[in-house]
Each structure stands twice: as C-alpha cells, then as structure tokens.
C-alpha cells in the first residue's frame, strides 16, 4: 500500500484539559507518603499474604504481656514477672525481625518498580520522601513497642485490688515507657532503613538487617569477654536494653554506665538517619 506524504500538518483538539482544582502541596504529599507507608508496614491495602508476617510478629510481641497477665489472673495477685523496662529485651529479636521484614517493603518497592522518579517529579522532595518513609517505619515500630506496654499497664492495674492506687503509683512509668519506646523504635527503624534503602533486593536487605542486629550482639558478647567491658557497646540489642534501663533508672548488670549506652543509641540513630538522607540525596531516580 502506498501513501502520499501529508501536504499540511494539523493538530487535533483531543479535549485534554489541565488540572484546575486546588493543589494540596508538599505537606499533603509528604503526609500521603507517610500514611501509605505506615499502612503498608502492616500490609494494609495489600493482599492478605502481605499481612501474615506483620500480624504474626505483632501477636508474638504481645505474648509476654499476655502470659504475664494470665499468670497474674490465675494466681489472683499482682506479679512482677514482666517489668516494663525489660519488655524490649524480651522481644528484641522480634523487633529486629519486624524491621528486617518491613523496611525492605517500604524502601525497596519503589526502587524495584523504578517509581522513585515519579515521586521526585512531584511536590515532594528527596528529603521529604526519606523522612516520610522513616517516620512511617518508626510509627509502625511504636505500635509494636507501645501496644504491649499499654496492655501490660492496664492489665496490671486491673489485677490489683485497688486499680486507682496502682495507677497513681505507676503513673511515673508512663513517660519512661514513652521515651524508651521512641528510642528503641527510632534506633531499629533508622538502622534498618539505612540498610534497606541501599538495595532494591528484598532478600539482601532482610539479610543485612538481621545480620547487623544478631551479628552485632554476637560480636559484642565476644568483645565483652575478651577485649573489655566496653565491647558490649557494639551490640545494638544491648545498647537498646542499657538505654532503656537508664531511662527507667533501673537496676542492671551492665559494667558500662547506662547513660553512655543511651548516648550511643542516640548517636547510632543520628548516623543512620544521616545515611538515609544521604542515600536519598544521591540515589539515581
């Protein structure tokens, strides 16, 4: 079939229109990324199989509180089995597994699908995106750290003879629980996201995160036994526990000053946040 070249060009009006409504702007865009990321940290809005792992971990993280309250209820008296300052050390592996499972979901998905450029060409900036993702993971971790503490606190109050008396006495613990949960959540989330933002491969990210938590605990134990007492400062798990003890002014068996461990947690978190921001400044999108 032969065709002759067109003599004259023409532009057809296909009826495209530009968006005339109000633009909600950067703040709204950041909030949207934050909310969607937080939802996806628990598999909300995703298919059922994405919910399995976060739900399993959420259930397990509640187990110590449930067991404690079960025993207290059965023996009809207030118990001291699970103390609020010990809670995060009971479930530290679960917390690490949660960030190992979900940080790659938050950071890796957009890299795998090459959708980062779609975000950065909108009102949102690279730093906003990074902070929204980090905020979402910290918030998700706060759910995991605060919900069991709340269950424990309320449950303890109801198993005593005088709930009001208990609340009055232990009210001082509330800010401590909040502060330590924020600290633990911030550390886990920032370390995990610093690793997960570096690779689109889910298995690598998950492996790296679990390795840094479990590996640092193993190495910290070795260094503690050989090089000296400051060796334990390498272990992220022990840092979390030590910092929590410092916040609660609780008795502990560490040979290192716990305020030092608290400072180390803040330092590691700050470095991780810096690494995340730097990664997203430079990531090709």
């Amino acid at each position: 079939m032969t065709t002759e070249p067109e003599r004259a060009g023409s532009i057809y009006d296909l009826g495209y229109r530009s968006y005339g409504g109000t633009r909600l702007g950067r703040r709204h865009a950041v909030r949207t990324v934050y909310v969607e990321s937080l939802r996806s940290a628990f598999g909300l809005g995703r298919r059922a199989s994405s919910k399995v792992i976060p739900v399993i971990l959420l259930v397990i993280v509640l187990l110590p509180a449930a067991v404690h309250l079960g025993i207290a209820a059965a023996s009809r008296q207030q118990m001291d089995i699970v103390k609020p300052e010990d809670y995060s050390s009971f479930v530290e592996v679960i917390l690490a597994l949660f960030v190992a499972a979900q940080a790659p979901e938050l950071a890796g998905r957009d890299q795998r699908n090459r959708t980062l450029s779609l975000y950065f060409s909108r009102a949102i900036e690279r730093r906003d995106y990074a902070l929204a993702k980090l905020g979402a993971l910290v918030s998700a971790m706060l759910v995991l750290t605060l919900v069991p503490q709340a269950v424990l606190f309320v449950g303890n109050a109801f198993t005593t003879n005088d709930a009001l008396e208990y609340l009055r006495e232990d009210a001082a613990n509330v800010p401590r629980v909040l502060a330590s949960s924020v600290l633990v959540s911030g550390l886990c989330a920032s370390v995990a996201l610093a690793i997960a933002s570096r690779t689109p491969r889910r298995a690598y990210a998950t492996g790296g995160i679990i390795a840094i938590f479990v590996g640092s605990a193993a190495i910290g134990g070795i260094l503690d036994a050989t090089v000296g007492r400051y060796g334990i400062m390498v272990s992220l798990f022990d840092l979390m526990t030590g910092a929590t003890y410092w916040i609660f002014s609780a008795e502990h068996e560490y040979e290192v000053a716990t305020e030092l461990m608290f400072a180390a947690v803040v330092g590691v978190t700050a470095i991780s946040v810096g690494l995340i921001l730097r990664r997203y400044e430079r990531i090709p999108a």
Partner: peptide, 19 residues
C-alpha cells in the same frame, strides 16, 4: 512457595526453632 521466602525462613529459625 512464596516470594518472601527469606523472611519466612528467618521466622522459622528464630521463632519456631528458637522460641
């Protein structure tokens, strides 16, 4: 069986075998 085998395996190792 699953695209998330790595994390599922970790759960088996830490939660089932460990806990």
């Amino acid at each position: 069986l699953t695209g998330r085998a790595f994390i599922a395996g970790l759960l088996y190792v830490f939660i089932w075998e460990g806990l």
